[in-house]
């Protein structure tokens, strides 16, 4: 029997007032896969992320996280998700460690386990000696990496990132993109929302969202053929318009 996907979305539709934002969106992301949710601004990516994180409540049977229905078993589903929001969600006047401890506690980790995982995460990021610095002292790239490390503290099966490279310079953007691709290779499922096609790697899955509809769902290498990813994205948007 095959393993249940880390994320399964079936026939998701949502309106903001009279304006349909998502229309019959369906796709799945298996374990160990980097899936890019690609679309221009206003395609519905952030709304989709809000549904996947339970901030907008989906109908039963529409969103499953590691077999847990977000509508029927919200807490079990949320326990399997790590989220990095588009907008940083950090207390800039508290230390790196305090920020990580706060998150760990929200996810029910005891102090001992939390401290061990925090130490491990900071070591991995090369930030162990900065644990007691205020976050305000860190640059944008470091803050983002810390947010990613934070989202992994409770060892989720699915990592959701909503435009995580917005506002970062090119080297930081590339470092973070590579870092998260590595996380996927290590076994976690990743859903990476972006409007920047150059962040995709050939082996990634891509779900192309346009005006709330999934236009394409496949592996980047198979879809782009002999074009660059950016050219393919431009062509796909033109034919969808």
């Amino acid at each position: 029997m095959s393993e249940a996907p880390a994320l399964l979305v079936r026939g998701l539709s949502h309106d903001w007032g009279r304006k349909p934002t998502l229309r019959d969106v369906s796709f799945s992301v298996p374990r160990g896969r980097f899936c890019a949710l690609l679309g221009p601004n206003g395609a519905g990516k952030s709304t989709l992320m809000s549904v996947l994180t339970g901030l907008i409540r989906p109908a039963p049977g529409v969103v499953e996280i590691a077999s847990h229905d977000m509508a029927r078993a919200r807490r079990a589903a949320l326990a399997e998700i790590g989220v990095v929001f588009q907008q940083p969600t950090l207390d800039l006047d508290r230390s790196v460690r305090a920020n990580l401890r706060y998150f760990a506690a929200l996810h029910g980790l005891g102090r001992k386990i939390a401290d061990a995982r925090i130490a491990e995460a900071l070591e991995r990021l090369g930030m162990a000696e900065r644990a007691d610095e205020r976050l305000r002292a860190l640059n944008g790239g470091h803050r983002r990496r810390m947010e990613i490390a934070r989202a992994l503290l409770h060892r989720p099966r699915l990592l959701l990132l909503d435009e995580p490279t917005v506002g970062l310079d090119a080297p930081a953007r590339s470092a973070i993109t590579d870092h998260v691709h590595q996380l996927a290779r290590d076994g976690i499922a990743v859903l990476w929302a972006t409007h920047l096609a150059d962040e995709l790697h050939p082996e990634d899955q891509v779900v192309l969202l346009h005006k709330g509809v999934v236009v394409t769902n496949g592996v980047v290498r198979d879809l782009v053929e002999d074009r660059s990813v950016t050219d393919w994205f431009t062509d796909a948007m033109e034919s969808a318009a």
Binding site: T53, L55, R74, R75, L78, F85, Q87, L106, H107, G108
Partner: peptide, 14 residues
Amino acid sequence: ENGAMRLMLTAPLP
């Protein structure tokens, strides 16, 4: 406004 509320509301608690 700064997103901290989202962090709290996406924790696996009621």
